[in-house]
Amino acid sequence: MTHQLLTDGGLETELIFNRGLDLPEFAAFPLVDTDEGRDTLRSYYAAYVRIAVRAQVPMLLETPTWRANPDHGAALGYDATALDRLNRRSVELMNEIANEHDDELVGWQVGGILGPRGDGYLAAGGVDPAEAASYHRPQLAAFAAAGADRATVLTLTDVGEGIGIARAAADVGLPVVIGFTVETDGRLPDGSPLAAAIEAVDATAAPSYFLINCAHPTHITHAVDDGAWQQRIGGLRVNASTMSHAELDVAEELDDGDPARLATDQLPLLTAFPNLEVLGGCCGTDARHVAEMWGVGERPRAVS
Rank of each mutant, 00 (worst) to 15 (best):
D249E: 13
A223L: 05
L236G: 03
N213E: 12
A28Y: 00
T155K: 07
A46E: 11
G284Y: 12
R167Q: 13
L23A: 10
L270C: 02
N213I: 03
A55W: 09
R50E: 15
L140G: 08
N18K: 15
A142D: 11
A148Y: 14
R167A: 04
I113G: 01
A27Y: 01
D265N: 08
V250N: 04
D265H: 12
V57A: 14
D202K: 06
A145R: 14
M94N: 10
R54M: 08
E253V: 15
V224E: 04
G280V: 07
C214V: 09
G191N: 11
E104Q: 15
A68G: 03
H245L: 13
L83K: 09
E36A: 11
E14R: 10
Y45Q: 02
L276N: 00
F26H: 08
D119I: 12
Q139A: 15
V176I: 12
G10R: 07
V127P: 01
F29E: 02
S192V: 14
D202A: 13
V238F: 05
F273T: 01
T264S: 07
Y135C: 04
Y44Q: 02
A170C: 06
A75I: 03
R232T: 04
V278Y: 11
E96I: 10
Q4I: 06
H222R: 13
G162T: 03
G191M: 12
I220M: 08
L279Q: 05
V172I: 10
F17V: 05
Q230V: 02
L248K: 11
D258Y: 07
R167F: 00
S43N: 03
A46I: 00
Q266D: 00
L236K: 03
G147Q: 13
G295P: 07
R167I: 01
H216L: 11
R42I: 01
L114K: 02
D39V: 02
R42C: 03
P193I: 00
Q109E: 13
P129Q: 04
V290L: 06
D35N: 11
L279M: 05
L194E: 01
P138A: 09
I165V: 10
V224F: 05
D22W: 08
G281R: 09
A251P: 10
L262A: 06
D225R: 04
V177Y: 02
G107H: 13
A196P: 02
R67C: 00
A251I: 11
A142Q: 12
G120Q: 10
A52V: 12
L122T: 14
A55R: 14
C282H: 11
V49G: 12
A47W: 00
R67M: 01
A68V: 01
L279W: 03
T34M: 02
A124D: 10
T157C: 15
G186W: 08
R167S: 06
L188P: 11
I212H: 05
S304V: 10
P70S: 03
L262E: 06
L276T: 00
Q109H: 13
T204C: 02
F143C: 12
D79Q: 08
D103K: 15
D8S: 04
D8N: 03
V32M: 15
R117H: 04
A200K: 02
A144I: 07
A82L: 09
P175D: 11
T40K: 05
G160K: 01
T155W: 08
I16T: 13
R232L: 09
T81H: 12
N213M: 07
